[in-house]
């Protein structure tokens, strides 16, 4: 076995009806950007649970992060983060929303002119804007790691990024959320997780 160091600072809150615990995880004085995807969270009750838990926090919403989080869309969110002086990010979604949030966590503190450089020049983020997640689609494992993959339609690129500053501060995993996921996405999730293990095992 090779020598290694291991540090994973993400707090996992796992179980039934745990979304309500958001309330005690986000700093009371935070200005939060709530990020989500295509809007399924508004149909399956997750959105209500999240907004109820955040009733006493200053929250702005940004929906519409697509599967394979798109750089151009995320740049719009980055503008909001800067214009509104956001201090905390909350991803409510699957791997795409969480990865997009990691990009924003890095881009919010990035000092260069072009955030895409974080991906092309493999700039590792030592400390990003703090963020947490509410996982709505088990698959990628992004809720407890520091990597992300971002897509750019303009150039048909899909590139990876990461760094020790990109672990979520917390992730809430309520297995009840999968009850409304379409079968196709459940099958994708199983395949994704299985292949993750294969890639680490077959060496």
């Amino acid at each position: 076995m090779n020598n290694f160091e291991f540090k994973n600072p993400t707090k996992i809150i796992f179980g039934k009806d745990t979304i309500a615990k958001l309330e005690s995880e986000i700093p009371a004085d935070a200005k939060v950007l709530l990020l989500y995807g295509g809007g399924s969270i508004k149909k399956n009750g997750i959105y209500e649970q999240v907004t109820k838990a955040l009733a006493n926090v200053d929250v702005i919403e940004f929906g519409g992060i697509p599967a394979n989080p798109e750089y151009a869309v995320l740049m719009n969110a980055l503008q909001i983060i800067k214009d509104e002086n956001i201090t905390y990010l909350l991803a409510v979604g699957g791997g795409s929303v969480i990865d997009g949030t990691k990009f924003l966590s890095a881009a919010a503190v990035y000092e260069g002119d072009t955030p895409w450089d974080i991906l092309t020049k493999t700039i590792r983020t030592q400390k990003g804007m703090p963020f947490g997640t509410v996982l709505t689609l088990p698959a990628t494992g992004s809720e407890m790691n520091s990597g992300a993959v971002i897509t750019r339609a303009e150039t048909k690129e899909k590139l990876a990024m990461g760094g020790p500053g990109l672990f979520p501060e917390f992730s809430i995993l309520d297995p009840q959320v999968i009850s409304s996921i379409p079968e196709r996405q459940l099958a994708n999730g199983i395949t994704d997780a299985f292949t993750h293990v294969l890639e680490q095992y077959m060496t």
């Binding site: 291991f6 994973n8 993400t10 996992i12 796992f14 179980g15 996982l135 088990p138 698959a139 990628t140 494992g141 992004s142 809720e143 407890m144 790691n145 992730s171 995993l173 297995p175 009840q176 999968i178 009850s179 999730g189 199983i190 994704d192 997780a193 299985f194 993750h196 293990v197 680490q200 095992y201």
Partner: peptide, 16 residues
Amino acid sequence: AADFMWSCTMALNGLI
């Protein structure tokens, strides 16, 4: 559902 969810997290949280 719970086994599935936790397996996905454990598959890529760096540990294995």
